[in-house]
Amino acid sequence: MLARLRGPLTDRRAGLLLGAPAVAVVLIVLAMLVFVAIQAWPTFQHNGLGWLGDGPAPTGGTVDQQLGSMVEGGEAPPPSAYAIKAWPLIFGTALTTVLSIAIGIVVSVLAAIFIVDLAPRRVRNVVVPVVRLLAAVPSVIYGLIGILVLVPFVNDNLISEGQRQSVQNVIPLTGPGLLVSVVLLTLMVTPIMIALITDALESVPRGWREGALALGVTQWRATMSVAVKAIRPAIVAAAVLASARALGEAIMLSMVSGSNGYAPRIQDGLIFLFEPLRPLAATIAENTESINSAALKSTLYAFAFLLLVSCFVLSLGSYFIKRSLRAQGAR
């Protein structure tokens, strides 16, 4: 037996050796999804579609009060302890993710064009490694800078006393909130997008660009209408990777979002930007110590299930978008 293993690695054995981890990963992911779904089932069962809803639950209170009353339910909670309407948390997650990815796409495409087309070699030799380094900065550092620098800055300089008073009966404005969260999240996800889009833009054949220029198109249009158009699949891939990171970001957002289960209201105008929120991932991270409450545990698993499913849907969606874009030969 051992003697056989010592022999040369045949293709068949190499295939098995390399295939095993790949299959294991798929199995683990599936098992995780099933496990999380089973654990989350009680809260879905008790709330039905109202789980996704907004406003006070049948038992009353904001989403944070609902979560708090779950803790009191203990290990064998009454059905009423499961009551929750999670919309503010879902909305907070979607809002921060969508905004930061939208800003991130624009910024990273422009930055990649600058790096590939315009930057002098010397600038480029500095910018590219720095961008890659930024992509690897742990999120807690962004959170620290956010809470020590950005939050006080927003509180002292951007929020006016009038704004504070106009909503003081609804929500306290103290600095942390949507604006700081989105700024930091964008800062966090953009470097990896720049790195990916730069690579894609560099792989665009020179002939395409020259071909466009030779047809009497300006440099800018040649870049936008040929090069950027050609790398749309890579942009989609970068956006999906970044949104997965943004969706799952817990610690940093827990530090700078205000950690308040409140859904910012667009109709509040500028104040909207300063209103606090708390996304799903941060909610999970903050409540893990009270996990011996059965109702809360199930609810947290439900949040996790929602995040997992969102990531799958994103991956699946990007697969189909990329496939249809590649049909024309884009890369």
């Binding site: 395409w208 024309q328 030969g329």
Partner: peptide, 12 residues
């Protein structure tokens, strides 16, 4: 106008 050595149709 110009035609190149390597055919370079755009990916469209």
């Amino acid at each position: 106008s110009m035609v190149f050595q390597q055919p370079n149709p755009f990916p469209m």
